[in-house]
Amino acid sequence: MSMTRRIPWMKYASASSFYPLANRLVPIFMGLAIVLAVIGLYVGFFVAPIDYQQGNSYRIMFLHVPAAWMSMFIYLLLAVYAIISLVWRVKMADIMAYSLAPTGAMFTFLALLTGALWGRPTWGTYWIWDARLTSELLLLFLYLGYMGLYSAIPDRQRASRAASFLAIVGVVNVPIIYFSVVWWNTLHQGSSFSVSDGASMTSDMLSALLLMTFACWAYAIAVVLRRAQAVILERKKVALWASQISRKKES
């Protein structure tokens, strides 16, 4: 008797090729994240000059801006996977959407927290209900809503569908966050990363910002792939259990 079980392996066809690939990618991206962050922090703290207006507090930018970018990018990615999962019922897409959410929520929280800690010495306040800050807070609630809805509904397919639907509807919030500083009079400054009038920062600041952004990407890839692996195994476990029960009933 072979170890192979009569469970629908085909349903996990893409998952079974994803799993060993993720095994190889996770350490690479985690290592990359550490190296990039170390170099980025070195440039950000020891090479980039002090800001003549803000003093040293501007160095929070090297964390705040990547975290805010990640919060939006990850949400868009989550929504794309949610669409694929909802329309084509691709299991791996659902696993990816599900695995992206906690990391996206973490980056959103970081963007809000670092923004508050940057706002205090710069604006004199931790928080203000302006369009940029409020829409970013809404993004955190969208992530938490997705995760909450997913875990609140016992039937996994229904949970996935409801949560995916919420994620897709919530996408309208992303352009609102992004353009809020243009559309409304916000206390939050506009992008300091514009191409049109030349970057309004030195090249050292820009390098530190980009290095930290790539570090955050590498980190997110590593953690999300690892979580997706966990979810694949957890779902395989449920499928194996179900197949065993149905076999017992047959005999």
């Binding site: 002090i50 003093g55 964390l63 800690l117 940057w118």
Partner: peptide, 12 residues
């Protein structure tokens, strides 16, 4: 950090 240590190290 020129008086901004709490905010910077709190963030990082």
């Amino acid at each position: 950090m020129g008086g901004h240590g709490f905010y910077i190290w709190g963030s990082y």
